[in-house]
Simulated scan of single mutants.
Amino acid sequence: MYDYKQEDLRVVRKTKAETEATRKLIIDAARREFAARGVSRTSLEQIAASAGLTRGAIYWHFQNKVDLFIALRDDVVLPLVGRLESALDLSQFADPLDAIEDYLLAHFQRLESDLVVRETFEVMMLKCEYTSEFGELLRCAMDRTQHIFVKLEGAYRAAAGAGALREDLDPVATASDTYVFLIGAIRLWIADVEETGLRRTVAAMVHAHMLMRRRPAAA
């Protein structure tokens, strides 16, 4: 007897796989077009043409350009944040400041090795004007990064407790300072497309940033 339930299940799986493949195709095309033109100057028609699809196919998966931008961001940034935060596992380091330095360096190693990550950050930081309908996205992005402050603050508190952090530094303020340093350095790294400036020196900059937070060795 023919098993219609199994056949229906195969159809559902095939349809789901095809839907996900089309969604990824659209996101990849959007990333390319946003990186080339900027978000505000890119139309859904241009993205559809780049993906080899109709505009209607895009609306099947995304409500509008903002919805597509969010999907592009979240598909890369959310998994990346989880992977990078493993570098802040203090149990792997005798000195919590070493964990923070490793965490900072991991961002630039990922940018260097992963084109999709690099293009996504380029779109978010250099090719999008956070005004009008995109204005709310900036606030949401700040809300989502709040846990990074918490992680860094915890690491700096651990460093203070271990006697590794300079006595005159407050863990909360120092965590905020490191976060600002990281975001600014990523932005400058991405902008250095000729690889003549910060990309060559970012490891040394990270080391210097952390060195200024370490308690001097006893004489």
Rank of each mutant, 00 (worst) to 15 (best):
L97Y: 01
K127I: 02
A204Q: 15
V39F: 13
D89Q: 09
M125P: 01
D102E: 13
R118N: 03
L88Q: 03
E167M: 05
Y59C: 09
A155H: 02
V193I: 09
R83D: 12
A49F: 14
H61D: 03
A191F: 09
R157M: 11
P216M: 09
E119Q: 15
A160V: 01
L105V: 07
R32A: 08
R139A: 12
K151A: 06
V77D: 08
V39Q: 06
K151R: 13
D143H: 14
L97Q: 00
Q109C: 04
T54H: 15
L138E: 04
L53P: 01
A155R: 02
D102V: 08
D98Y: 10
A51W: 08
R215W: 06
R213I: 00
R41L: 04
V116E: 12
A141R: 05
L188G: 07
E85K: 14
A204D: 15
Q6W: 08
W189F: 15
Q46A: 13
R187F: 06
L25H: 10
G154H: 07
C128V: 12
E167F: 02
L90H: 05
F181L: 05
H61F: 02
L165N: 01
A159V: 07
H107A: 01
V193A: 11
V202H: 00
F69W: 09
R200M: 10
A36W: 13
L84T: 07
F134M: 06
M210P: 03
G56T: 02
V206P: 11
E153N: 15
D75V: 07
H61Q: 04
R110Q: 10
M124Y: 08
E18F: 08
L111I: 02
P171H: 10
E101Q: 03
R199N: 01
L105Q: 07
A51H: 08
Y4M: 13
F108E: 07
V77T: 13
T19L: 09
